[in-house]
Simulated scan of single mutants.
Amino acid sequence: MTKMDFSTINKTTTQSYNEQKNMIKRVFKGQSVLCKVCGQALLLKLPVAHQPSTLSGIYCKKGCTDLELDMEHVN
């Protein structure tokens, strides 16, 4: 049985995860972050009280970047 080398996949996945995590941190701090594809500013959409079906996340107007975040509205 041949051993599979996942080191390249793991490295790429880790790098992508860290980039997204840092981008999310910058957006939550209120810093201006641009979409890597279209160059437009990324927008943060927060959950709305009494509307559980409202999606929250980070996105650009064109939809190139669309990160759905699992968040709850807190009073």
Score class of each variant (00 low, 15 high):
residue 5 D to R: 07
residue 5 D to H: 06
residue 5 D to S: 12
residue 7 S to I: 03
residue 7 S to Q: 08
residue 7 S to V: 10
residue 8 T to V: 13
residue 9 I to V: 12
residue 10 N to M: 10
residue 10 N to D: 15
residue 11 K to A: 15
residue 11 K to S: 13
residue 11 K to T: 13
residue 12 T to C: 10
residue 12 T to Q: 15
residue 12 T to G: 09
residue 13 T to W: 03
residue 14 T to Q: 14
residue 14 T to N: 14
residue 14 T to S: 15
residue 16 S to V: 04
residue 16 S to N: 15
residue 16 S to F: 08
residue 18 N to S: 11
residue 18 N to F: 12
residue 19 E to D: 12
residue 19 E to I: 09
residue 20 Q to V: 09
residue 21 K to S: 06
residue 22 N to S: 12
residue 22 N to M: 06
residue 26 R to W: 02
residue 26 R to M: 11
residue 27 V to T: 05
residue 27 V to F: 00
residue 29 K to E: 15
residue 29 K to G: 00
residue 30 G to E: 08
residue 30 G to D: 03
residue 33 V to Q: 04
residue 33 V to Y: 01
residue 34 L to P: 04
residue 34 L to E: 05
residue 38 C to Y: 01
residue 39 G to M: 05
residue 39 G to A: 03
residue 42 L to G: 03
residue 42 L to F: 01
residue 44 L to G: 03
residue 45 K to H: 13
residue 46 L to E: 12
residue 46 L to V: 05
residue 48 V to D: 01
residue 48 V to P: 02
residue 48 V to A: 08
residue 48 V to I: 14
residue 49 A to H: 10
residue 49 A to Q: 13
residue 50 H to S: 15
residue 50 H to E: 14
residue 53 S to K: 11
residue 53 S to P: 01
residue 53 S to M: 14
residue 55 L to H: 08
residue 55 L to M: 07
residue 56 S to Y: 02
residue 58 I to P: 00
residue 59 Y to D: 02
residue 59 Y to I: 02
residue 60 C to E: 05
residue 60 C to Y: 08
residue 61 K to D: 13
residue 63 G to T: 02
residue 64 C to D: 06
residue 65 T to K: 04
residue 65 T to G: 01
residue 65 T to A: 14
residue 70 D to L: 08
residue 70 D to I: 07
residue 71 M to W: 07
residue 73 H to A: 08
